[in-house]
């Protein structure tokens, strides 16, 4: 059980690491939000599951923290992406289309 917990912990931390790497490498703010939100959500869920294996008596509280993160993380990313778009954040030159800017009549 302890070994399983420690392995889950390493797997979660590895995803956190990938999220950090994505944050550094991705070309614009929207791609960075993508990398940041997905990797940290799964990474944190896995580390919390790992701690739950190491300390089964903490499982309920860790589950509450995990559920909270699972529901709030995508919301904050989405609100942030929306505000970045409304404020006219710079997009990577690789970006193909921007239907939202087209719909609002702004140059995409």
């Amino acid at each position: 059980m302890d070994l399983l917990g420690a392995l889950l912990l390493v797997a979660g931390a590895a995803f956190l690491f990938l999220g950090g790497l994505g944050l550094v490498r991705m070309p614009d703010v929207f791609n960075r939000i993508q990398a940041g939100t997905k990797a940290t959500t799964l990474g944190t869920l896995l580390t919390l599951a790992g701690f739950a294996c190491l300390r089964p008596d903490w499982a309920v509280k860790l589950l509450l923290i995990g559920l909270f993160i699972l529901f709030t993380n995508p919301i904050s990313s989405q609100v942030l992406a929306r505000s970045a778009h409304r404020a006219g954040a710079e997009k990577s030159p690789l970006t193909g289309v921007d239907r939202l800017a087209e719909q609002e009549g702004r140059p995409s």
Partner: peptide
């Protein structure tokens, strides 16, 4: 090479 081809679709 960081293969991204992003876009915002409806």
């Amino acid at each position: 090479t960081l293969p991204v081809h992003p876009g915002i679709v409806m």
